[in-house]
Write a protein that binds this DNA or RNA. Structure first.
Lengths: 177, 177
DNA sequence: ACATACATGTAAATGGTTACATGATTGT
DNA sequence: ACAATCATGTAACCATTTACATGTATGT
């Protein structure tokens, strides 16, 4: 259900084609959302049928970009007012509940792998903060400021999980588990 | 795909019925996983067909509990060796990317709501640590130790996100966003 | 007697992934 | 010429939710 709002949110910043959207998700909000192109084209079709997006420009190779409509903006604002409840499933931590089946070395090795994973993500998000271009003149930078706010949540999360994983691996090795 | 391993992991600790599993998920690993009873019964059927679980006991009201089989334990251990890659979608943070559409007061109010949500979860997980009974004599407490390890990840996460949300709301109100 | 909790199962619908299928443009 | 990338769309499949459907045991 949220894919449609991820799309609307992205189009609210700037019109885009399905192709663009997949790449934008991947570049900017891949730590909270992503989409396969199959899903995006399907959802764009539905959004158009609902009148939430409108064809914007056509380009070479059948390129078709879309813009958000007024109704689409209303729907997006409405969604922002609806508090989300259930938080995400987490496959990585789910495994920790079964780690007692492995011996201490193997369990600690899993936690090491987790730490490596978190370290990599953290580095990537941090570089994204540094490399982020100053917002285009012409926009007021407000959207960009909130992008950075969201990104800082991602960074805080990865940092915390990295510390947790390192400490957990240490505990398991020390037999404190 | 992970539901089957959540089930196997729970059965590895102790045999259970479908009804039990839904409640166990809800009580112990609800911050990383949950399941509707419809999904659980369906998956238990498949697991039995695959030989990963076996009927254990029958009780009143058609109660049927299952135990994990040797093949099921092997599958579970195998899954633990497979590093998970993609991390979870996060609806709550996704909204932050569109918060620039609201005025500062409304955006800050959304962040306040998030903070309240995180505060509630944090309190609940912390009480879970306190109230957790000492592991049954008869088991060696190893499974319990890893439960606590996973729970500590949940606590660290909520604490971090709470601090982030409070700070973000403050920033937005101060017009620093 | 009645409410509550126990207990299971399935069908329809939803949301998404993966694979299949096609073709145009650009850069080397 | 050829490879890479741009660009779209759909069909089959998968996991999960929600709703429908049923019935039993326990406690008050």
């Amino acid at each position: 259900m949220s894919l449609r709002f991820a799309i609307l949110g992205s189009l609210a910043v700037q019109p885009a084609s399905g192709y663009d959207l997949v790449k934008r998700f991947d570049k900017t909000l891949n730590f909270v959302w992503w989409a396969s192109h199959g899903a995006v084209y399907t959802e764009l079709g539905k959004l158009q049928a609902d009148g939430f997006v409108e064809p914007h420009e056509t380009g070479p190779r059948g390129r078709q970009s879309f813009a958000i409509s007024d109704a689409g903006q209303d729907a997006l604002r409405e969604w922002l007012r609806t508090p989300a409840v259930r938080h995400a499933r987490d496959d990585l931590i789910l495994r920790v509940f079964s780690l007692w089946l492995l011996d201490d070395d193997a369990a600690a090795a899993y936690l090491d792998d987790l730490a490596t994973e978190f370290r990599g993500r953290l580095a990537e998000y941090e570089s994204r903060v540094r490399d982020e271009p100053a917002p285009d003149s012409g926009t007021d930078g407000r959207a960009h400021a909130f992008d950075q706010l969201a990104l800082s949540a991602g960074i805080a999360h990865e940092r915390t999980m990295l510390a947790w994983a390192e400490d957990a691996a240490r505990q398991v090795r020390a037999g404190e588990d």
